[in-house]
């Protein structure tokens, strides 16, 4: 599998941007038009097409496959790098979540009841990690695939002499 160029490219794009998305503060760049998830797809396709010979037509289907793979890898990397940052105390851990929620509420931010229930319940860490993993994979899938398709449109080199 490691020799598969699609998988290798997805590993680069998903790995790099997945890790960036998990960084404290830097990860908030995703709030700007999902920039990091889309960027992961674009980077993956850049690496994929770099080693490709020019083709008469843009390989959108290959790009979509690279994007889907990037989404899976990126979502997993984001979740687990995020969990490591939590364990290192660089971002608030689940046990501190109730305190953070209280501070947010004092600041006038209205939080849904279900968030408060999850964050303060037993086994909250595992539940939150699972929910986060599913959310990250789905979102990275959608926007990573779109990014990969945009990447194909941008980086595809046309074959000047087809046939």
């Amino acid at each position: 599998m490691m020799d598969n160029p699609k998988f290798k490219s997805a590993l680069m794009g998903g790995g790099v941007f997945g890790a960036i998305a998990a960084l404290p503060y830097v990860g908030m760049l995703n709030s700007v038009c999902c920039a990091l998830y889309i960027g992961g797809g674009v980077l993956a396709v850049y690496f994929y097409l770099k080693e490709h010979v020019p083709l008469p037509k843009a390989p959108y289907a290959d790009g979509a496959v690279v994007g889907v793979l990037t989404g899976v890898i990126g979502g997993v990397v984001t979740t687990f790098v995020g969990a490591i940052f939590m364990a290192l105390g660089l971002v608030p851990f689940v046990s501190e979540a109730a305190e953070v929620l209280a501070q947010l509420e004092q600041a006038g931010v209205e939080l849904p009841d279900f968030v408060r229930d999850i964050a303060t319940g037993e086994g909250a860490g595992a539940v939150l990690l699972g929910v986060q993993l599913v959310m990250n994979v789905i979102m990275f899938e959608i926007f990573g695939t779109l990014g990969a398709l945009v990447g194909v449109a941008i980086f595809h080199k046309k074959d000047a002499n087809p046939g």
Binding site: Y60, T145, L146, L149, V152
Partner: peptide
């Protein structure tokens, strides 16, 4: 773009 990908597939 996704329509082109679907058609190509």
């Amino acid at each position: 773009l996704p329509l082109l990908a679907i058609a190509e597939l």
